[in-house]
Amino acid sequence: MTATTFDLRRPAGRFVLGALAHIGRLSLLVAEMIRGLSEVRIWFPLAMTEAWKVGVGSIPIILLVAGFAGAVTALQTGYQFSGNIPYYVAGSLIVESVVLELGPVLTGLILAGRIGARYAAELGTMRVTEQIDALETLGRSPASHLIVPRVLAGLVMIPALTVIANVTGIISGWVAVQAVLPVTDYDFTYGARFFWRPFDAYYSVIKGFSFAVCITVTSCYFGFSTEQGAEGVGKSTTGAVVASCVMILLLDTLLAKLLLH
């Protein structure tokens, strides 16, 4: 009994120490980032390039995923409809599902893979090939050259992509629902407006922004703290994507509780 207690304490202690070390390093990175914000001349053009790469480059996958998500929601709505529910409810259901949940969460998860993996792999490779050390020896701040542009590009583009995903999901849901139910355009738009609150749109963008913070800061942190060659880059990339996805799901629940109730 004593031996079991002893065995459990050690890994638990190591876990706590490890977690505290991560929090400490992450806080230092965020502090560096805030300090790097003052070098606008350096990060602004880099952020523009980064925004173009991560934003425009992500549009096709976002259109694809949101399009299918909206269509599937519509088809399943049709499957669950019984005779005594008014058809306009389909419009409310699809629009609210897409705007409140599917649009921001699917966008977040897809971009955690696309942008998060990209950031972690890029920065990780730069770390193991000493490019980050080189920047420091040249008296330049890695935060303003590498982290600030990436984080800001993500903070602008991910909420924007969330809005694009919402619009795409609603349009595809609108088209798809008419294939399975006799819902007219009037029914759909009436239903969409019936339960609509302007806060729903803000909530969706707030979620997109929160997920953007998670994805960009987490992946930059993982990339920045990469160690030990190609294997380390692989580990950081996987870690960044997994951590971002878990944080997105946790935040999704937390925001629903905090902002919708």
């Binding site: 000493e130 490019q131 050390d133 008296g139």
Partner: peptide, 19 residues
């Protein structure tokens, strides 16, 4: 430290060039 580093040129083993 930044000022000191500007007086030192560091040549890395594999170049560490920004690719």
């Amino acid at each position: 430290l930044r000022a000191l580093r500007s007086t030192i040129g560091y040549v890395f083993q594999n170049g560490a060039l920004f690719d």
